[in-house]
Design a protein around this nucleic acid. Structure first.
Length: 224
DNA sequence: GCGACAG
DNA sequence: ATCTTGTCGC
């Protein structure tokens, strides 16, 4: 897919925080126009020496969830891991992997938070704004937000709130298994995000596309 | 000051 | 994320 640069990735954590506040203004939680026919998922892994980061993008079709194409990218790590600033570490390689994808998927699943973030601009939102396409944050654990009780029945969920905002949901994707933290990243609503993630869940905690991307990037990791 | 803290 | 063995349950 064609992608244009929005900004440099070289900056200090303090500058990164300021940039997130500015870019968060361009996040649009508008409903997805039509039912998604193709969905992509991206996952990252680090080289053994932790100096390089790799990403795999997997595109599948719905509702079959069959792989249409995959792509990969490897870059040098240039930013430390700081809670709240994950995109400055992982977004560059994720974007590069998406650049190698032919066509444009209807929605992209990201391993991290969407707006369920201190400045409402998690990894999924950053990638969504950069690519100007719908993204869903699909995290395995919580960054911020409160919720009532942990759902344990597949398909059930609790709203994730921060102050007076509903920033996402705690979604059970498989019976009796630790829930996922779903939040819209860009150009999609929370309700649609939940439904789409569930439409990708067959027999595992992670939605199939995300699981596939994780398996593939883990293999790629060994060849680094 | 103390704990929490995506990947 | 990464390291790291066995073990409980469907």
């Amino acid at each position: 897919m064609n992608i244009r640069d929005l900004h440099s990735w070289s900056m200090t954590p303090a500058q990164a925080i300021q940039l997130q506040k500015e870019l968060a203004l361009s996040v649009r939680l508008i409903p997805l126009g039509r039912l998604p026919q193709t969905i992509a998922a991206i996952d990252c892994a680090f080289s053994r020496d932790k100096k390089r980061i790799a990403a795999i993008a997997v595109q599948v079709c719905l509702p079959e969830l069959k792989i249409i194409q995959t792509s990969e990218a490897v870059l040098d790590v240039t930013f430390p891991y700081v809670p709240g600033l994950l995109s400055f570490r992982e977004a560059p390689v994720c974007i590069e992997a998406m650049r190698m994808i032919r066509g444009i998927p209807d929605v992209v699943l990201i391993d991290g938070q969407g707006i369920a973030h201190p400045r409402r601009f998690g990894l999924a939102s950053h990638i969504g704004v950069w690519l100007d396409c719908p993204t869903i944050g699909c995290a395995k654990s919580r960054l911020i937000g409160q919720f009532e009780r942990i759902p344990v029945k597949k398909g059930k969920y609790e709203l994730l709130k921060d102050k007076n905002d509903i920033i996402g949901s705690v979604l059970c994707t498989r019976n009796q298994v630790k829930p996922l933290f779903i939040s819209p990243g860009h150009k999609i609503t929370l309700d649609q995000s939940i439904k789409i993630v569930l439409s990708c869940c067959t027999r595992y905690r992670l939605p199939d596309p995300a699981r596939l991307a994780h398996q593939l990037v883990t293999q790629l990791r060994e060849k680094l």
